[in-house]
Design a protein around this nucleic acid. Structure first.
Lengths: 339, 339
DNA sequence: ACCCCGCATGTTTGCGTTCACATTTCCGCT
DNA sequence: AGCGGAAATGTGAACGCAAACATGCGGGGT
């Protein structure tokens, strides 16, 4: 027999009914120890594994949670997925992750959601840092709980985000505190909520301090785009403090600055965002705003779990506070007067 | 009616039998255009989605491929998963990714494999850069095709890897070619096949050139561990050329060297591995060995697809060639003589 | 005019599991 | 000894779908 063994095969081998096998598998009470061991032995001998599809079909529920992730090559998303995964393992849920390929986000996320729903996912986590995610979310039938990460409040679903507005504010204030007249900002992609929030935080801190906001530069998340912006900034003598969209952008900026002979932090102070593991080893070590991605992942799963037990969608939200990590790229402004 | 609609609901609404609905859904021939549109309309009105579990149960096959990934916060693994995901989308397969949490790899990967098998995955891709993966692989029933990425030849399954031996050799030769007497190596974790292969490549190139192999330093994959090793190297005047396990390690080494006043590349030449996107923006821009991770992902899926159609496991393997990316961290050895 | 074939559709069955219910077994008590 | 009841086990149906088979219908060839 080459066919995969099924429950009745195990039952026959153990000399019991298939239902008893099911009971053993599901840890039901009222199974005598001797039968249990006999069944377990039969399972082991046959190499039996239960067919999850049949189980889901019969019970109508599954303990699979789906994760829809945007761009998992980025440090943030991938850390969060990892954290969600670990948390899920602890809660005896299993995770299936749908990776949205970069090139056609909308179509891809539709397909992935479609798939996850068809597979009978008990709940869905959307890593939803861009607007496109909202549309995919609408495809989810109302019965299925949803949690977004980095979603927008107006979406009216449970959400957990890092308070990136606070982060932007923190970064800007830190620079201001060192005596800079104002702070320049190299922003991330405008479709991302995170970069918009960081930008608002920057503007708010500037306004609070009565500082004029210089024109904003737009980068992506990459060092390459940061480099481009950095070349602009390097030509502007007034620019003594820069808040970069993230650490990699900051790296690009630093590089461009160095090429033009502008030293960090003596001539220009610089602050990043994320605190990627290697940021401490940039040259000089990057001052940055740390996001606790793992925390976010855990919270997201907790929120989902809450909904799973109550059975209804809720819209409670959680904010995770970022923290400043002070290293070597921030100093006071250069003293004017030399030629 | 709050219950999710099923096929017969659609059938009733469209005034046909459930089987006709099934035929429309599966694109079977012999359905008249008018019925087709009627069925499609009913599906849309009801918001019907088919139950994948039932489908899998009925057909006995699924077009889900499982991916078991080790540590997806690393750049390499996450790029490969991403590439596999894109390729799968193109082949009308859907992907479910099991993320093995770092802390207990063996137990976690067991559970994940178990899960994937129970879910009826048609095939499995193991991102298997460490030995622990082999054990999890053994849990997979023989009927299910397997492809490993960065696996070992002796595992006797289909595999695709970057030729990291060649990469290590390339890196070392490049340094030697610039006139360095020998090349030091800061290796990656010894459990990883990749770091062992890079090490062998390094030794081979040294041996071919008749150069003595200096003692090897052991790091992890992180900048932090590279930094530790770099502090050692910085004290060794003889050390003029370093081949680092990967780009982040190289970054750490660079940092340590700089702190001790040893310039790259004037005093010490340095070469990394991977070519992470930001490597070009390190200071100075890092010379490195590029791995085409996306290629690896695509090849892996192709190998799996081959097995899926033939229905039998094969053990064909593929190597993808790394390439050197020459930037600014390699130069000739410093001229001796000055005090 | 007949037959046959192919298209369009319906009917039945089974996939492997769990659930609700039915049945048997066993033990302790009077 | 006999009875009650809980513990242990078995039986049948249902989950939603697709495959195999069955049916009805119309049209072209002879």
């Amino acid at each position: 027999m080459s066919r995969r063994p099924v429950m009745s095969d195990v039952a026959a081998r153990a000399g019991v009914s298939h239902q008893t096998v099911s009971r053993v598998l599901n840890g039901h009470p009222h199974v005598s120890p001797t039968t249990r061991t006999r069944v377990l032995a039969a399972i082991a001998e046959l190499g039996y594994r239960r067919n999850l599809s049949a189980r889901v079909l019969a019970t109508g529920r599954s303990n699979v949670v789906g994760v829809v992730a945007q761009n998992t090559t980025l440090y943030g998303p991938s850390s969060m997925v990892q954290a969600i995964g670990e948390a899920a393992l602890g809660a005896d849920l299993s995770l299936t992750v749908g990776h949205v390929a970069g090139y056609d986000a909308t179509a891809a996320s539709r397909r992935i959601v479609e798939r996850l729903v068809q597979q009978g996912a008990a709940g869905l986590v959307f890593i939803a840092p861009v607007d496109a995610a909202a549309e995919a979310m609408r495809l989810v039938p109302p019965g299925i709980p949803i949690v977004t990460v980095d979603g927008l409040p107006e979406w009216d679903v449970a959400n957990v985000s890092v308070d990136q507005y606070a982060g932007g504010r923190l970064a800007t204030q830190h620079l201001l505190k060192h005596g800079h007249r104002t702070v320049w900002h190299v922003a991330g992609p405008e479709q991302w909520h995170g970069s918009r929030a960081r930008e608002s935080g920057w503007r708010a801190a500037l306004a609070e301090a009565g500082a004029q906001a210089p024109p904003m530069l737009r980068a992506g998340w990459s060092a390459a785009s940061g480099y481009q912006c950095g070349r602009m900034l390097a030509r502007i003598p007034d620019c003594t403090a820069v808040f970069a969209a993230n650490d990699h952008v900051a790296l690009g900026v630093m590089r461009a600055l160095a090429e033009q002979g502008r030293r960090v932090p003596e001539d220009v102070s610089l602050i990043g965002f994320d605190d990627v593991p290697e940021a401490a080893y940039f040259h000089p070590a990057l001052t940055t705003i740390r996001q606790e991605f793992a925390d976010v992942g855990r919270q997201a799963l907790r929120l989902l779990l809450d909904q799973l037990v109550t059975g209804a969608r809720t819209a409670t939200s959680t904010l995770v506070e970022p923290a400043m990590v002070d290293r070597d790229t921030v100093a006071g402004p250069p003293v004017r007067g030399g030629s």
